[in-house]
């Protein structure tokens, strides 16, 4: 069909009649509506026409992706794990041979007093929660040469137990040894101290100390050089 012949005829008419003629022509020829002209000056695509914007957005997306991957890994490592408070009465107590044996069997870098040959191990207990998760270790040991009696507790840095309350309440003197910060207090009946090493927290009770700084001798004996 020669659309142009009609088109030319209509174009030579005046405006009002032209519009009417165009409308009649469309109806008779069943022509679709002419597509709207594209506005090329706005929109998502227009935004990314600049190369530097593409680079900036890609960089930001990469940073977000990295954070999404590495933050959970860091949290899982335990550095930011949630603290818990436990009660000794709620723990399950089991006997272990000694802290030394427990550390070797489980490949853990635990500190202990090497008095097993020159003293007496009264007991060594592992305290777990009701899911069998480690809460703390307690070891009572004496030194037959000096008569010193020491109670040693070990827990991880994210765990607090009610039996440690007296250490936090009493140990208000600070002492540094080999970059380890130690909190301690000497009393006539017993001396107390606590410190952190690696991922663990250590609490030491020395019954009837023979000198004011005897507890620090015990701590120095435990810490690696």
């Amino acid at each position: 069909m020669n659309y142009n012949k009609f088109h030319k005829f209509i174009e030579e008419q005046n405006t009002e009649e032209k519009e009417e003629l165009y409308e009649r022509l469309k109806q008779r020829l069943n022509l679709p509506e002419a597509p709207a002209k594209e506005n090329k000056n706005t929109g998502f695509i227009q935004f990314f026409k600049k190369p530097y914007r593409i680079i900036a957005c890609a960089s930001a997306a990469l940073v977000v992706l990295c954070l999404a991957i590495f933050i959970p890994l860091a949290l899982k490592g335990g550095e930011l794990a949630e603290e818990r408070y436990c009660y000794e009465k709620d723990c399950v107590k089991t006997d272990i041979a000694s802290i030394k044996d427990y550390a070797e069997e489980n490949d853990l870098p635990l500190l202990y007093l090497e008095w097993y040959e020159k003293g007496q191990l009264i007991y060594s207990n592992l305290f777990s929660d009701n899911t069998e998760k480690f809460v703390y270790i307690k070891e009572k040991i004496s030194n037959d040469e000096t008569g010193d009696l020491v109670i040693l507790y070990i827990t991880d840095k994210n765990t607090k137990v009610d039996v440690f309350e007296k250490f936090w309440n009493i140990c208000d003197i600070e002492y540094t040894f080999n970059s380890n910060l130690i909190y301690w207090k000497a009393q006539s009946s017993e001396s107390l101290a606590y410190f952190e090493n690696g991922n663990y927290r250590y609490f030491i009770e020395l019954v009837r100390p023979m000198s004011e700084e005897a507890i620090l001798d015990i701590v120095r004996e435990m810490l690696p050089e």
Binding site: I122, T146, R208
Partner: peptide, 11 residues
Amino acid sequence: CYPNGRYRIQD
């Protein structure tokens, strides 16, 4: 007692 005179803890 231990040799230094302090009371022994339990064995």
